[in-house]
Write a protein that binds this DNA or RNA. Structure first.
Lengths: 230, 230
DNA sequence: ATTACTAAGTTACGAGTAA
DNA sequence: TTTACTCGTAACTTAGTAA
């Protein structure tokens, strides 16, 4: 498997294809046309296309002469991710919006939010004692890049700790609202992005927000720019 | 000199530095911290920093332990350019707005707009014979990236030409309005972006728009997506 | 701790060329 | 014309260190 991220030169190629319109349309492009664009050889352009194809970032229909190229959803997601990074660099939003579906997942949430080591830190750093259990919102996987973005901002760090039985990982929290009800988003400090967001609050969110499983909610996460680039 | 564009892996590094806040602040970063971020070795991170430094895209103040890194204006420009590309991919606006200050600069403008080689092409391609002289609008340098964006779109190309005395460079024109008065934006095809926009029109714009030097005007530039990505 | 050199290993590039 | 193979070489990466 690919360990992390796309190779920079493949990203460049993918971006170039997007600039040529390969996201919305399939475009007729020869490897030598592409090689002129990026100042690489025809052979390298051809190899890049093969690589992108094998990673399912582009699709190709080979004609007798040229080929029809289009960027796949997966390829487009990578570019969107990149776009989000640049937005972050130059635009610095203050809040991030999600819409997602309420899902139940009380079993695990209750276990974690009852851990003394977490509770004490939540109370100290967030200013409230969390109601046991988490309120879970399932977001569109396409919006997972927003999570990446959020984690780059200044959050409230809950340190990892250990009990005689096991160890618990660190968590980063952000002030948020779900349908205007204040709460806090919790994200694991380490590990990968799930498409389920978990929220905690001083009260039982399920009744406060008053929604059933499967109902859509609007989430606003409040973020602040990091002062120090550590 | 560097032939064209930044190496993709250096761009990635520069972007990463920007995400860590190195555009507005100088940030304390060790090469191994950076290497973790992008999943490269400490040695490679160190080499990247040396390369970026030698290209004047970043500045470094070496401490006894870590170093303070900041992205230079030149480095920031490269990232802005990249941002504009992504904007182009995903946003595709039809018109670009500027607000700017009227400035006088008739001397040069009159010289250029009187050149037979330009006049003939303006008449043929824009459909009007320009009134001698340009109407100049000074925009916020922050908005210079909009110019970059505009130049990526389909404009009216005025070819370079030569006279016995000297040669005149190519120009790209876009239909535009200043305070709703129709005119055309002219940008040099080659060379860098100035923060002064020059406009031509069939009539004397100064009286048509009826503003004095220093007064603010609203500019709308009309752009169309390039059909062909040549 | 750091940064960054050298040397060796690895990957990528493009000329030549086949299909 | 295309795309894309082989293969020699150029470029990049990293391990081992020095400062």
């Amino acid at each position: 498997m690919q360990d992390q991220g796309i190779k920079p030169y493949l990203l460049q190629m993918l971006k170039e294809l997007a600039l040529l319109g390969a996201i919305s349309n399939r475009v007729e492009l020869s490897s030598s046309e592409l090689s002129d664009q990026i100042h690489i050889s025809q052979q390298t352009a051809s190899r890049y296309l093969l690589e992108l194809d094998s990673m399912n970032l582009i699709g190709r229909e080979m004609g007798i002469k040229k080929q029809l190229i289009h960027i796949t959803e997966k390829g487009s997601d990578i570019l969107k991710d990149e776009y989000v990074h640049y937005k972050h660099i130059f635009d610095l939003p203050q809040r991030i919006y999600f819409t997602g579906k309420t899902v139940s997942g009380m079993k695990e949430g209750t276990y974690y939010t009852s851990q003394e080591g977490y509770v004490r830190q939540f109370e100290e750093k967030l200013g409230f004692k969390p109601y046991p259990g988490t309120f879970n919102v399932s977001i569109d996987p396409i919006e997972k890049n927003k999570i990446r973005l959020i984690k780059r901002y200044e959050g409230i760090i809950i340190d990892p700790f250990e009990t005689p039985h096991r160890s618990f990982g660190g968590v980063i929290c952000f002030h948020a609202t779900i349908n205007e009800v204040p709460c806090a988003l919790t994200l694991p400090l380490r590990g990968h992005y799930s498409s389920i967001l978990e929220f905690i609050a001083p009260d039982y969110l399920r009744t406060k927000i008053n929604v059933e499983d499967g109902e859509m909610v609007t989430v606003i996460v409040f973020i602040a720019k990091k002062e120090d680039g550590k």
